[in-house]
Design a protein around this nucleic acid. Structure first.
Lengths: 151, 151
DNA sequence: AGGAAAAGCGTGCGCTGCGCACGCTAATCT
DNA sequence: AGATTAGCGTGCGCAGCGCACGCTTTTCCT
């Protein structure tokens, strides 16, 4: 009955979440990338990079926000030239959101920043440990208790 | 140059954060625990369990919120009997926040829920893998790129 | 084929939560 | 002792969120 592993992980996870709230992490990652991209708009940018060109409603579902909220955040990003609205050629009502090249660049930069931070903090780890950890983390996240959607 | 480990971890981490935003996770964890405890008030409760009885200002620093915000959330928790205000015997101006027994119970329940969820998702793992993962995760979080405080 | 229902978008509006500024009391410094 | 500082609660303005509405286009049903 020495299985306190669940508690250990819960503790570490709690600490991780406390440290890297979306707000905190994204604020830090997007520092100095222009006024339009901050902790609120970045999820839209990043989500769009993940899904590829799509509608605001779809993107909203992806990142867990209301359609209208996405629209407004997208407004800011569009005005800054990071994002572009295109009429859907297949559907006259629909408006597609598409990253511009500049938008893709921003996402690249932030992702690079995050990966670099992680790698530098892994610098002292034996490489095989780091790789094992990466695999396990991936598996944990995929199978984990947070897999189910909000509803 | 095969070191894409940083990117792998960054991806998994991104997914994890997307799934377990404070709002989502805490909403789920606090389900059915009464009207006073939700994703907003729970961090106060949980933080107070961590720090022990302390002032609202201190607690605010701990959980990254403004003093006044903590005060207001604490109001709700106090009204529900989960938390109690005590005049600081050593300082006439100060007001200490202290969990009631009922408050401690709530925290226990949510922590148990989280640990149980994690353990069940680890059920298929070899025990030594799970323990190794717990150790590595703990180390990663402690040394990690998110250690530094916001300012 | 054509009218009704549904889907998609943007915007007006009310609600909520946050943090700053103020006023007050108590402690600390000179 | 008088002045400054620290701590608390509350009033207030601001920002973001999501619902509801009006509009256009598509889809469905007869």
């Amino acid at each position: 009955m020495k299985n306190s592993t669940g508690h250990d992980i819960a503790d570490a996870l709690g600490l991780l979440l406390r440290r890297s709230t979306r707000a905190r992490l994204y604020t830090r990652l997007t520092e100095g990338l222009g006024e339009a991209v901050d902790d609120l708009t970045y999820p839209v940018l990043s989500g769009l990079a993940r899904t590829g060109t799509c509608s605001a409603a779809d993107l909203g579902r992806e990142i867990g926000l209301d359609r209208t909220t996405v629209t407004r955040r997208a407004d800011r990003l569009e005005q800054a030239g990071l994002l572009q609205r295109q009429p859907d050629p297949a559907d006259g009502r629909a408006t597609l959101l598409a990253l511009t090249e500049q938008g893709h660049n921003i996402v690249s930069v932030t992702r690079q920043r995050l990966a670099a931070g992680i790698e530098s903090s892994l610098a002292t780890w034996p490489q095989e440990d780091a790789q094992a950890f990466a695999r396990q983390l991936r598996r944990f996240v995929d199978e984990g208790p947070f897999t189910a959607e909000p509803h």
